[in-house]
């Protein structure tokens, strides 16, 4: 059947597209932040599936692995995704705090109510 990484690639990209779609169409601020997390999740899936090698195990050299070079998956994308996830959390937390403050000002969560700065 299809290779594993093709499936995950498709899922990752479609998650990104869905996230972007949510970002662009949803008016609710919380929904926008959620769409951001979806885009991030999609990207992370994309990164890991690009780093996947056929029929290989996790990059941890315990008893079962004798010759690491032939048996492990590429560790670098995993390291990158690790950092990216935490950064994603940081940004989501900050965005939510902004959303709280914005909601307090205008008592609404609709993004089109916050148009004080234009032209």
């Amino acid at each position: 059947m299809m290779a594993l990484e093709h499936i995950t690639l498709i899922i990752g990209s479609s998650l990104i597209l869905l996230g972007l779609w949510g970002l662009i169409t949803q008016k609710n601020l919380i929904k926008i932040v959620i769409s951001f997390t979806l885009v991030d999740a999609g990207i992370h899936i994309l990164m890991i599936s690009l780093g996947y090698l056929k029929n290989r195990t996790a990059p941890i050299v315990d008893g079962t692995i004798d010759n690491a070079v032939e048996q492990i998956v590429d560790p670098i994308p995993q390291a990158m995704v690790l950092t990216a996830i935490v950064i994603g959390l940081g940004i989501t937390a900050l965005m939510l705090s902004f959303v709280i403050r914005l909601a307090k000002d205008k008592n609404s969560l609709n993004v089109s109510n916050f148009k004080d700065l234009k032209w």
């Binding site: 926008i32 990164m47 990158m80 965005m95 914005l102 205008k106």
Partner: peptide, 28 residues
């Protein structure tokens, strides 16, 4: 005040999207 929080929010969301694209670029 209200205005600067909005500006901050716009800046943050915009840079977040830009860095997301950049991340895709990096993995490619």
């Amino acid at each position: 005040e209200g205005k600067s929080v909005q500006a901050g929010f716009k800046y943050l969301t915009a840079t977040a999207i830009i860095s997301a694209f950049f991340l895709i670029g990096i993995i490619f």
